[in-house]
Design a protein around this nucleic acid. Structure first.
Length: 435
RNA sequence: GCGGCCUUAGCUCAACUGGUUAGAGCGCAGGACUGUGACUCCUGAGGUUACCGGUUCGAUCCCGGUAGGCCGCCCCA
């Protein structure tokens, strides 16, 4: 009956224990921290009408041009599996008329995104993002709140070596003049550009600033910076952002080449990049662990009211990889493991385990029974902090002999007598030292 | 989408220039030992050497294709 094995789809991974605990750890911190910052969770469908991404992300971007999972459903509608979270959030914001209900809205979301791309470390076809969106404020305080949220999140999650890169793209009124200057700057080099670069020159000139092409490096260094082209309003806004960040003690690097790949960004753009102070980055080239910025026109362009917005998206796959390489996330383990025997008191032992669990303690046992030593091996394997055999003697004495499993190999054995009556109190103390 | 590298037990890797029973550690299972230092010792089960085809008397090792993974580019989280 056994046929050929069926593998998972390329670029889409199973998340299994024990690594899943790293994901839960991150999600747990996100839920509480984002909540305290005033951001409420939303969940949108995994698919949207293709048109949504074409109009928001931009027709000429790589995402829309070649990376979307698009198909026609049975009603012959063009459907796309979401490649990012900002557009769906904006769509929901508009669709539910949220702007009519409240002037300021702060949301966060987490879930899988899909992009048909060539595989590489930290880059998958189904990947997970944690993102936030704040609608309704034009104030620099909003940009900074969002950035501060990111910075604090990285701190709490335990990733210290992350650097904030900051830039401003100005808005629709300043962009044309800058693009003109930029085109003029690169125009002499069109002859020596690769086909890719030429296309970028034509369609999205700012992208050239990010190019690694040898022939362009000198020109990139001397290229005009958009921050020198900002109009009064954008300039002040950017200054305010920097001033506030400094006030909050959030370090940043001005990065005039920071150009984000999606069309909807205006004014502030930022990235958090993992740069370990010493040694190699376990993320390789996939160092960008969070990217975001302001998109004041997006809601309106999608048919909604004039509502400015700021947001970001974090790549959780990369974060998980990082945390796993740092081994900083504690793995859960039973406080107490109860060994049982094949006697009439076994039912009582099992009943005790279940009762303790139901009262909130992390207690384990081996439902297969078997030799006591095998059960103790099992206890060791699941990293239980304490082990106790529950047999006839213990049952009669109503007392467990509890063995410390976390001692050094050569340390003297440590065994405590704890009566059934004192068990809860003892566990309360013991569970503090383990998890 | 373009260029390059890789693919041997569940995991990490070994096997002289192609030569005939493909090894080790970890893990897993059992025993010593169904009543306690589990971390010890012994034993065992796992491989059509990713898949398909070719060259050869003979291929894990050579060639081609497919799939998967990795690196760079593109781009991004």
């Amino acid at each position: 009956m056994s046929g050929p094995k069926i593998a998972g789809v390329k670029g889409m991974n199973d998340l299994l224990p024990p690594q899943i605990e790293t994901w839960q750890f991150i999600e747990g911190i996100a839920r509480s921290l984002f909540g305290r910052y005033g951001f409420a969770e939303i969940r949108t469908p995994i698919v949207e009408h293709t048109e949504l991404f074409v109009r928001s992300v931009g027709e000429v971007t790589d995402i829309v041009g070649k990376e979307m999972y698009t198909f026609n459903d049975k009603g012959d509608r063009s459907i796309t599996m979401r490649p990012e979270g900002t557009a769906p959030a904006a769509r929901a914001y508009i669709e539910h008329g949220v702007a009519n209900t409240e002037p300021l809205t702060r949301w966060f979301y987490t879930g899988p995104m899909f992009r048909y791309e060539r595989m590489q470390t930290g880059r998958y076809r189904q990947f997970y993002q944690l993102g936030a969106e704040a609608y309704g404020s034009l104030d620099a305080a909003q940009d900074v709140e969002v950035i501060s949220l990111c910075a604090e999140f990285f701190k709490q999650v335990g990733v210290p070596d992350v650097v904030l890169h900051l830039n401003s793209l100005g808005d629709a009124s300043t962009r044309p003049a800058y693009l003109e200057a930029l085109k003029a700057h690169f125009a002499p080099l069109v002859e020596v550009m690769s086909a890719d670069a030429k296309l970028a020159f034509e369609r999205n000139t700012m992208r050239l600033l990010d190019s690694k092409e040898e022939a362009l490096q000198a020109a990139i260094k001397t290229a005009p910076a958009i921050i020198d082209f900002l109009d009064e309003g954008s300039k002040k806004h950017f200054d305010d952002v920097q001033r506030l960040l400094t006030k909050l003690g959030i370090g940043f690097e001005l990065d005039r080449r920071l150009v984000r790949g999606l069309d909807y960004y205006t004014r502030t753009t930022f990235e958090f990049i993992y740069q370990p102070k010493s040694g190699e980055s376990s993320l390789g080239r996939a160092g960008t662990v969070c990217g975001g910025g302001r998109y004041d026109r997006l809601v309106h362009e999608l048919g909604g009211p004039e509502k400015p917005a700021v947001g970001f998206a974090m790549g959780l796959d990369r974060l998980v990889m990082l945390l796993d390489s740092l081994k900083s996330v504690p793995r859960s383990a039973p406080t107490l493991f109860v060994g049982t025997f094949d006697g009439p008191e076994r039912d009582d032992a099992i009943a005790l385990v279940m009762a303790l669990r139901n009262e909130g303690f992390h207690v384990d046992f081996d439902p297969r029974g078997g030799k006591l030593n095998k059960q103790k091996e099992r206890a060791s394997k699941v990293n239980a902090a304490w082990f106790a055999a529950y047999g006839d003697a213990e049952h009669k004495a109503r007392t467990l002999k509890i063995d410390n499993m976390r001692l050094a190999k050569d340390a003297p054995r440590e065994q405590l007598d704890v009566s059934f009556d004192a068990l809860r109190a003892w566990l309360n103390g013991a569970s503090k030292g383990s998890s």
